[in-house]
Amino acid sequence: MIAGWTSPSGEEFALTFDRDRTKRVLVLPAWFDESNKVRRLTVEVMRRLDGAGVDTILPDLPGCNESEIPLETQTIASWRAAAQAAADEFSATHVLAIRAGAILAPDLPGWRYATVNGSQVLRAMLRARTIAAREAGREETRDGLLETGRREGLELAGYRLGAEMIGELETAEPTDLPQQRKIAHADIGGAALWLRAEPDHDAAQADALAAILSMELLA
């Protein structure tokens, strides 16, 4: 179902499988372009955990999905505060952070799946923009774009990011939280869905990820 919650920057929505059970996993999604490609996998994992008796909550990051907040106003600091607010409001007992979502993870026990840092996210989006520009006959360089971005923000892969977010992305790393276990994509198997040119799904990957979580949650 869709539930409302309050982030420090305003009202947001979350997709939830919430039946007031004792294990409640906050799911922090992949970012930007990757979020679309991994969304179905994310929700399918949640569906499986629901079947296994575990509640899950997938909040919209402010400025993304159904959020009415302009993405441009958001920073990694504001997203971290939002992730914490969602964890508190939904009384999450665990966290599953996907890809760059690990950068935002509150200090709860849980998992980080196929983590990337901010500079990797930024690099892929800058590269996409320089390739698109060249195709359109414009010459843009990564360094030139970064300089503009740090000063006045930048539109990357269709996402309008503020100057502060660009600057933060250059150095953002997942915080080192020992109670969160890393799950490498190799542990799941199959071709990584965030690489796929078009959003796709692989039931076996959802099974594998949900199995790891439920075995550890219900042990």
Partner: peptide, 17 residues
């Protein structure tokens, strides 16, 4: 690139990475 519609700039960026 330019022949496969699904291979857009973001997909190419992912491919190169």
């Amino acid at each position: 690139f330019g022949h496969l519609p699904e291979l857009d700039s973001m997909a190419v960026a992912g491919l190169l990475t």
